[in-house]
């Protein structure tokens, strides 16, 4: 009896990095959803008691809408990076990852403006405290997403994209999309319905 080893078949399992990041992303999303739920519940309780949540005119919608637009654009650029990684298109990949990082930095900059504009004190009351808790957590999440994008950019500088790095870009994009969805929640709950 003779045994012949054939070449290994292509694995059909979901990609390890993408699956791992998907689960981590789900966990971050659950944490953020819980934060927003606390915010909404407290606001509802305050209004039911006849109290004011934010003083009139203190939270402007303009900068928040601009951040939403910026993040919508970043969805396109991060997906552009995924496509570039798939096709081994390095120049486009670098541009897309770089622009995505720039958009992330722009959103943080706009949040800084919002903080200056509202001039809330964190101990000003429940509304102000939760405003900082929710938006601050979002900024932390966004910085996490930027770190993932930056790491994939640096790794792609060291060599060709390849399958593993393409999966890394996909995983970073997955997390980034979740951040945008979370910001959509912040935009609606904190800035629109105030």
């Amino acid at each position: 009896m003779r045994t012949t080893a054939l070449p290994a078949a292509e694995a059909t399992r979901p990609r390890t990095v993408v699956v791992g990041v998907l689960m981590a992303t789900a966990a971050v999303f659950v944490a953020f959803a819980a934060l927003v739920a606390i915010y909404v519940q407290q606001r509802q309780a305050a209004r039911a008691a006849g109290a004011e949540w934010f003083p009139d005119g203190s939270v402007e919608l303009g900068p928040a809408g601009m951040m939403m637009m910026t993040l919508m654009l970043s969805i396109v650029t991060v997906q552009w990076a995924v496509q570039a990684a798939r096709t081994e298109d390095r120049p486009h990949g670098f541009i897309a990852l770089g622009v995505t990082l720039m958009f992330g930095a722009a959103v943080i900059n706009q949040f800084w403006f919002v903080y200056q504009d509202t001039a809330f004190a964190i101990d000003g009351g429940r509304a102000e405290l939760l405003f900082y808790a929710v938006t601050g957590s979002f900024i932390a999440m966004l910085i996490g997403g930027m770190a993932m994008v930056a790491v994939t950019t640096i790794r792609s500088l060291m060599g060709p994209f390849g399958r593993e790095l393409a999966h890394g870009v996909q995983a970073a994009a997955l997390y980034w999309h979740m951040c945008v969805v979370c910001y959509f929640g912040v935009w609606y709950v904190v800035f629109i319905t105030k």
Binding site: M23, A27, V28, V30, A133
Partner: peptide, 20 residues
């Protein structure tokens, strides 16, 4: 693991609010 991922992060949210 799935149940932990959908439950334990809620405690993190509680801790963020308390800590802040």
């Amino acid at each position: 693991a799935a149940a932990w991922l959908f439950t334990l992060p809620v405690a993190i949210a509680n801790i963020v609010v308390i800590y802040a």
